[in-house]
């Protein structure tokens, strides 16, 4: 059973978003996503300052058997990346909603079409 914390927003591509007090968004992949990928061995992060369009691939997460793109659901510029993942990508496995965050984004517009925890849980239940 994958964890789906309340208070976060989710995408259908199994990413989570958290609105920070300063208006930025923190992005990561969900517990379900990290279970599907297996133990992660590498994370390719964008450079701070990169400007991303909504739906653009911004991060690549790799396990031994799979590589997956992470898409930003909203346009914006990257204000921080989780550099600790470059040495220890396993943080995504052990703490997908905490130490395993991927990047922080200054959004250029409001995000569309996000799910709340209940809706995401329902998505997981129906596709399982």
């Amino acid at each position: 059973m994958s964890a789906v914390p309340a208070g976060l927003k989710y995408t259908r591509d199994h990413e989570w978003l958290r609105e920070e007090a300063d208006g930025t968004l923190t992005l990561g992949i969900t517990d379900h996503a990290q279970r599907q990928l297996g133990e992660l061995v590498f994370v390719e992060l964008p450079e701070v300052g990169s400007v991303l369009a909504a739906g653009q691939g911004c991060v690549v997460v790799e396990s031994v058997k799979a590589a997956s793109d992470v898409f930003v659901p909203v346009a914006g510029s990257v204000v921080a990346v989780n550099e600790a993942l470059e040495q220890d990508p396993g943080r995504i496995n052990t703490s997908p909603y905490g130490d395993g965050w991927l990047l922080r984004l200054q959004p250029a517009s409001a995000a569309q079409d996000l799910l709340d925890a209940a809706a995401y849980q329902q998505l997981l239940d129906t596709t399982a």
Partner: peptide, 12 residues
């Protein structure tokens, strides 16, 4: 480093 290769990444 097989995740870079065609049998996993396909068109990417």
């Amino acid at each position: 480093l097989q995740a870079r290769e065609q049998h996993i990444r396909r068109s990417k």
